[in-house]
């Protein structure tokens, strides 16, 4: 990888948290030294930190902590996991996290894999049900984002039931069925009353 400031080989890979965003820097030795000197002098200058004015370099400590705290509270609308919980467990909560936390995850994933684009196989999609209203003439998309919204819908259905708003719960349930029918043809599913499975050995 080349230094982002010149044509030399990048030997320093720095991750900076700035205004709630994670920024990656890839620098050669010379530019890394210049960069790090800058940030040290910025951190050392309390007045500048307090006024917050004219800072183009990395964030000061106080701001970084605030931003981190905000980021930690960000929660996935589908499964409800916060970024803080993910950082603690190292495990994500649902497929939608890759979309919801994309900005935060991207540098992390790029760091682990040295890449940020899948180039391997794609799943063989189950055939869309021709009889279903939703699938009329439409092809299922490559990504399964739509089906994953069922995770959030299931949660709101449970909430509606808890509030005894059965009409709302029914509506949400019909919504879930519509999406599931489109993606999962031959499957009769009712999240509320799972049919008994075959015996196991």
């Amino acid at each position: 990888m080349k230094c982002q400031e010149c044509d030399k080989q990048a030997v320093f890979h720095i991750t900076e948290l700035e205004t709630g965003e994670v920024r990656e820097l890839h620098l050669c030795e010379d530019h890394a030294r210049t960069y790090l000197n800058q940030s040290e002098s910025a951190e050392g200058d309390d007045d500048e930190k307090a006024s917050g004015g004219g800072l183009t370099g990395p964030l000061t400590v106080g701001q970084t902590a605030d931003e981190l705290a905000l980021l930690d509270k960000k929660a996935c609308p589908m499964c409800g996991i916060t970024f803080f919980e993910f950082r603690n467990q190292g495990r994500l909560g649902c497929p939608h996290d890759y979309v919801h936390f994309e900005k935060e995850l991207e540098p992390l994933i790029a760091n682990i894999h040295g890449a940020a684009q899948h180039t391997g196989r794609k799943p063989q999609r189950p055939q869309a049900d021709e009889g279903s209203q939703l699938s009329e003439g439409s092809q299922l998309p490559e990504g399964t984002e739509e089906l994953t919204t069922v995770i959030g819908l299931r949660r709101s259905m449970q909430e509606a039931i808890a509030c005894e708003d059965y009409e709302q719960a029914r509506e949400v349930r019909d919504g879930i069925r519509g999406i599931e029918d489109r993606w999962l043809p031959d499957a009769a599913r009712d999240p509320g009353s799972p049919p008994a499975g075959p015996p196991t050995s």
Partner: peptide
């Protein structure tokens, strides 16, 4: 072909741990 695997065009097969994604 019978199970809708969680998949994203950019991230590939989505896994619980980002170390397995793609």
């Amino acid at each position: 072909s019978a199970v809708p695997y969680a998949y994203h065009p950019k991230w590939g097969y989505l896994t619980a741990c980002p170390t397995n994604v793609g």
